[in-house]
Amino acid sequence: MDLTGVFVPLITPFDAHGDVAVDALIRLAYETLEDGATGLVALGTTAEPGSLTPAEQDAVVDAIGRVCEERGAPMIVGAGRAAATRRPVAAALVMVPPFVRAGEAGVEAYFARLAADSAVPLIVYHIPYRTGQQLSPPALRRIAQLPNIAGIKYATGRVDADTLALLASAPTGFSVLAGDDVVLAPLLAMGAHGGILASAHLSTHRYARLVAAWRDGDVPTARELGLPLAHLSHMVFAEPNPTVVKGVLHAQGRIPTPDVRLPLLPAAPSNVDAVLALLD
Results as ranks from 00 to 15, higher is better:
Thr163Pro: 07
Ala165Gln: 15
Asp181Ile: 08
Leu166Phe: 05
Leu164Gly: 00
Asp181Cys: 07
Ile196Ala: 10
Ala198Ser: 14
Val176Ala: 14
Asp181Val: 05
Leu197Cys: 01
Ala178Phe: 02
Val176Ile: 10
Leu197Ile: 14
Asp162Met: 08
Ser199Tyr: 09
Ala198Ile: 01
Arg158Met: 09
Ser169Leu: 06
Leu167Cys: 07
Gly194Leu: 05
Gly151Arg: 08
Val159Arg: 13
Asp180Ser: 10
Thr163Cys: 03
Met190Thr: 00
Leu188Ala: 05
Val183Ile: 15
Ala200Phe: 04
Val182Leu: 10
Leu166Lys: 09
Tyr154Glu: 08
Gly194Pro: 02
Ala200Thr: 04
Leu167Asp: 12
Phe174Lys: 13
Ser175Pro: 13
His193Lys: 15
Lys153Phe: 02
Pro186Thr: 12
Pro186Cys: 13
Ala178Ser: 15
Leu188Tyr: 05
Leu202Ile: 13
Pro171Glu: 11
Leu197Asn: 01
Gly173Ile: 08
Ile152Gly: 05
Leu197Met: 01
Asp180Gly: 09
Ala168Met: 06
Ala165Pro: 03
Arg158Trp: 02
Gly195Lys: 09
Gly179Ala: 13
Ser199Trp: 00
Pro186Tyr: 13
Gly179Met: 12
Val183Asn: 08
Ala198Thr: 14
Leu202Lys: 04
Gly195Cys: 09
Thr163Val: 03
Ala170Pro: 11
Tyr154Cys: 06
Ser175Ile: 04
Ala192Tyr: 03
Ile152Ser: 07
His201Trp: 02
Thr156Lys: 14
Ala192Leu: 06
Ser175Ala: 14
Gly195Asn: 10
Asp160His: 09
Gly194Val: 08
Leu197Trp: 02
Ala192Phe: 04
Leu177Val: 04
Ala170Val: 08
Gly173Trp: 06
Leu188Asp: 09
Tyr154Thr: 08
Gly179Thr: 13
Leu197Thr: 00
Ala198Phe: 00
Thr163Met: 09
Leu202Val: 02
Ser175Val: 07
Ala189Ile: 05
Lys153Asn: 08
Gly194Lys: 06
Ala161Lys: 12
Asp181Gln: 13
Ala150Trp: 09
